[in-house]
């Protein structure tokens, strides 16, 4: 493996604290679950929001992920990093909404029209435009591509970890990342010109 270039460092080994909380959790100490999960909540919510357009569903998805994690923690063997394991649970649940949602719901019909929007500054407008285009481009990806690009760009995971989350090979994970990046770049190209 080549040394990484342009990649953010990421902790692949559990910290001492994580080992401690994990051991206590697996020994039946439910109170250790909160400190064990705390560091991963923001990342889980970000990934859930990438999967669900409705922010409330995203919150529910994280909640269900935590419930499943709590139930499955005694059987967690540490083959993968805890973060990878959590993301894998979330991705699985997101791909099968009928497993955790009470019922499949239709797309919202309601559109709120704000009465008075101030004129945003030019920069803010461009940023919003970029964000809208980016969101649109991400939504056009397949769920696996979207997850792969998110885990790579936002979470800084390497291909092996992404593969563990997606339950595929590292080569397939790389293909998902590259294809997703290419598709998104094609849609927001003009906003990212140097």
């Amino acid at each position: 493996m080549h040394p990484r270039v342009g990649s953010r460092p990421q902790p692949s080994e559990p910290t001492e604290h994580e080992r401690l909380w994990l051991g206590r959790c697996q020994a039946g100490d439910g109170a250790a679950f909160q400190p064990l999960m705390r560091p991963y909540l923001a990342g889980l919510l970000a990934l859930a929001r990438r999967h669900c357009r409705d922010p409330h569903w995203a919150e529910d998805l994280v909640q269900e992920t935590l419930v499943r994690a709590f139930r499955g923690l005694p059987a967690f063997r540490g083959d993968a990093a805890l973060r990878t394991w959590l993301y894998r649970i979330l991705v699985r649940l997101a791909s099968e909404p009928q497993r955790w949602q009470r019922s499949f719901r239709a797309e919202p019909l309601d559109v709120d029209v704000p009465d008075g929007l101030g004129t945003p500054a030019a920069d803010a407008a461009m940023a919003r435009e970029l964000q809208d285009r980016l969101d649109e481009a991400m939504e056009r990806l397949t769920p696996r591509q979207r997850t792969a690009l998110h885990l790579r760009a936002v979470e800084g995971m390497d291909y092996a970890a992404i593969a563990a989350v997606l339950a595929c090979t590292p080569v397939a994970a790389r293909m998902h990342v590259l294809a997703a990046r290419r598709k998104v770049l094609d849609r927001v190209r003009e906003h990212l010109e140097p």
């Binding site: 270039v5 390497d158 990342v177």
Partner: peptide, 8 residues
């Protein structure tokens, strides 16, 4: 991209 962005 895989080499210089993802280093992999």
């Amino acid at each position: 991209l895989a080499r210089f962005l993802d280093g992999d």
